[in-house]
Simulated scan of single mutants.
Amino acid sequence: MERKFGRFLIVLVAITLSVIFICHIPALLFKDIPPPADQPFAMETKELGFFPGNYFIELKKTFIELLHFKEISYIAQGTNVERTIFPYILESYTYSLLLLFVSLFIALFFAVIFTTGTFYLPRRMQEAAKTFLTVLEALPDVFVIFSLQLGAIWVFKHTNLLVTEPYSVSGQKIYFLPILTLSLIPMIYLYKNTILMYENELGKPYVELGVAKGMGKLYILVRHVFPNVLYSFFYNLKYMYLLLLSNMIILEYMFNIYGILQFMTNHPSYEIILAGLILLTLPLSIVFFLIQSFLPKGVMYVDQKAM
Results as ranks from 00 to 15, higher is better:
165 E>L: 12
193 N>L: 09
53 G>I: 03
30 F>A: 00
138 A>N: 08
154 W>R: 10
191 Y>A: 11
258 Y>I: 07
119 F>S: 09
23 C>W: 00
110 F>R: 03
207 V>A: 10
279 L>I: 01
107 A>D: 06
42 A>R: 00
103 S>F: 05
126 Q>R: 12
99 L>V: 07
239 Y>F: 15
63 F>W: 06
172 Q>K: 15
227 P>S: 10
63 F>L: 15
237 L>I: 15
9 L>S: 03
139 L>A: 15
51 F>M: 03
255 F>A: 09
177 L>Y: 06
231 Y>D: 05
173 K>W: 06
273 I>G: 00
218 L>K: 14
10 I>A: 11
214 G>E: 07
269 S>H: 03
257 I>F: 04
149 Q>R: 13
95 Y>A: 04
28 L>R: 04
42 A>P: 04
62 T>R: 01
193 N>E: 14
215 M>C: 06
184 L>M: 10
131 T>H: 09
273 I>P: 00
189 Y>Q: 12
5 F>M: 05
152 A>T: 11
163 V>I: 15
154 W>A: 10
40 P>M: 05
295 L>C: 10
286 I>Y: 08
200 N>T: 13
168 S>F: 06
247 N>Q: 11
134 T>K: 13
165 E>I: 09
4 K>I: 06
108 L>G: 07
192 K>H: 15
138 A>E: 08
190 L>W: 04
205 P>L: 12
305 K>R: 07
180 L>Y: 04
60 K>P: 00
278 I>H: 02
114 F>G: 03
181 T>I: 05
11 V>A: 13
72 I>V: 14
31 K>R: 07
138 A>Q: 09
2 E>K: 05
95 Y>K: 06
163 V>G: 06
271 E>Y: 02
221 L>Q: 14
223 R>P: 02
3 R>Q: 08
64 I>T: 09
226 F>V: 14
242 L>M: 14
271 E>A: 15
284 L>P: 00
181 T>S: 13
199 E>M: 12
185 I>T: 07
230 L>W: 13
283 P>L: 06
167 Y>G: 03
15 I>K: 02
75 I>V: 15
66 L>W: 02
16 T>C: 02
250 I>G: 05
252 E>L: 08
38 D>W: 05
